[in-house]
Each structure stands twice: as C-alpha cells, then as structure tokens.
C-alpha cells in the first residue's frame, strides 16, 4: 500500500515536472524565437513568438480572473470556462458510456464468435479512418430526421454520438485482447466444472481482462472528449468548451490570451475523464498482484 502511494506521488510529481518543462520551453521560445516566425526554404515552420501568437503564460492565467467581455454584466472568464467544460463533460460522459457499452459488447461478441472477429474487426479499423469533421454534420442531419415514438433527437446528442464514435474503438480492441488473455488452463478448469459461457465470461474472462481494459478505457475517455469538442466546433453547438474555443479564437488578435483559457479548459476536461477511469482502476485492482497493476 505504501509502495502504491509512493508510486502515485512519483507519477504526480513527474506530471507536474512535465507541465513545468512545457511552460519553461514556451517562455524560452518567446525569448529566442523569431518575432515574425521562421521560414525554411520558403516554408513557414517556426511559429511566431510575438505576444499575439504566443502570449505570456502569466497573461493566460491572469485572464481567468478578468471578465469575459467588456461591459458591466460580464461574468469572470474562469466561471464561463468552467461552465462550458462542465457542459462538454456531461456530453463526453454520455458519449463515453455509449461508446464503452458498444465497445465491450462488440468485444464480447467477437470473443464468442471467431467469424465475427474476422468479419468485423477490419470494418472497425476502417471506421476510425473516417475524418470526424466530415462525420459531424452528417450525424447532426441524420439525428435531426429521427423521430421515433415521440423521441426527438436533441442536438447535443449528436456531439455525444461522435464522442462515442471515437471512444468505442480502443475500448473494443483492448477489451477483446483482455477477454482473450484468460489462460488456456483456466478456461479448461471452467470447462471441467461444466461452466456455462456466461459463467466463464463473468467469473473468468472479464476479471482477467481488467488490466487490459483500463488503458483502453483511458484512451476511450480522452477520445470521447475529443469527439465532443470537435463536434461542438464543427457543428457550432452552443454551451460547451468547443464553442468557447472558436469564439475566443476569433478574438485572438485583440485578446490573444483568451483562447488559451478555453484550450486549457478542454485539456482539463480530458484529464478529468481519464481521472475517472484511474479511480475505477484503483478500486478494481486493489487486490491484484502488484506487477499487473499499471
């Protein structure tokens, strides 16, 4: 237990150090980088280091405490970003739940039927090469046409569906690998007890799959956030962090620090989702041998 705590502390430390390194690099580049950007063989490769393109970190941070817009009734920006993040978080959570249900169901199906795996897996791989930006408007228009049993498709659900679209794939693949990781001897043992497929699934395959499922679910969690944010941006859905990013990006010339407040909000959102999975990981793996705890 003590060892686990130390490892957690070490990881947190490394995380903070890596953030600090990025911050130092950012400020360093502002000192040494070319003001108007750098060109190599006529191609712009070095970003501009001026305050419009790369505002100072302290400007970004202090921007949080200032009002969103000029005017008497404007709220402070940290509150706006937090509310946007919370809105997107809920959409991402819905997408994550849908995506992981589909991913786990597909993995179970592919474990049950070998032909399923051979027939389905290539399509799953291809599905991930469809660009999200192209898919987003399609999903919105399909959803808009859906009216079943008095159910009208809310616009936000399209964003969740796109989150699910990015989340399900790593989850399906990771869970499939995990379900297949149960040792042959253990499967034989279950057979010798004449265990049913369902019993073998829930008492052996799924518990054995958890070490594989956790990293897959982490990928899926960040996938659901990316899906939702990109969907918000490309469909112009109001209320979320994606919308804030495009809005603030338009104001970047006059208020360069503003857009970064929203970008960090999106990053925090991804971390919060991954944190949820880590929490589940710690709970599920607390009694396992230490080597397999990732």
């Amino acid at each position: 237990m003590n060892k686990q705590l130390r490892r957690a502390a070490y990881r947190t430390g490394m995380f903070l150090v890596s953030i600090a390194l990025v911050a130092v690099f950012w400020e360093l580049y502002k000192v040494v980088g070319p003001e108007k950007g750098g060109k190599l063989f006529g191609v712009a490769i070095l970003p501009r280091s001026n305050d419009t393109a790369m505002p100072h970190l302290w400007e970004m941070l202090s921007r949080y405490a200032e009002p969103e817009m000029r005017g008497p009734h404007s709220r402070q920006i940290w509150l706006v970003v937090l509310q946007g993040a919370w809105f997107s978080f809920r959409l991402a959570l819905v997408g994550f739940v849908i995506g992981s249900s589909i991913g786990v169901a597909l993995a179970a199906l592919m474990t049950r039927f070998k032909t399923m795996e051979r027939g389905l897996l290539p399509y799953l791989v291809v599905s991930q090469t469809v660009p999200l930006i192209a898919l987003a408007p399609l999903v919105v228009s399909w959803g808009g046409k859906l009216h079943i049993f008095g159910f009208t498709w809310p616009r936000w659900l399209s964003a969740s569906v796109l989150g699910a679209f990015l989340a399900f794939f790593p989850i399906a693949v990771g869970t499939l690998r995990g379900l297949k990781s149960a040792p042959a001897a253990s499967l034989e043992l279950m057979d010798s007890y004449a265990a049913s497929w369902k019993q073998t699934m829930f008492k052996l395959r799924f518990p054995a799959a958890i070490p594989y499922m956790v990293p897959a679910f982490k990928l899926g969690a960040s996938g659901s956030v990316i899906g939702v944010v990109v969907a918000e941006i490309s469909t112009g859905l109001k209320g979320g962090i994606g919308r804030l990013i495009i809005e603030y990006a338009r104001q970047a010339t006059g208020d360069p620090a503003k857009v970064f407040t929203a970008v960090f909000g999106a990053a925090g959102l991804g971390l919060a989702m991954a944190g949820l999975v880590t929490l589940a990981d710690v709970l599920l793996m607390r009694n396992r041998p230490k080597e397999t705890t990732t």
């Binding site: 043992l189 010798s192 007890y193």
Partner: peptide
Amino acid sequence: QDYGMAFQQAGLFDWRSVAKNIELPLEL
C-alpha cells in the same frame, strides 16, 4: 462435477481471495 482437476500451475484466480477460489466450483 464427479471429478476435480488440478494442473501443474495452481491456476488460482488472482482477483479472488483464497476462500473464494475454493468456492468457485460450488458457486458454479
């Protein structure tokens, strides 16, 4: 379940306590 079986590898389930491992066939 007229017979019990044991292999070279004990093959206990990591995620079950010792007692729960013994209970596995009874649970099934």
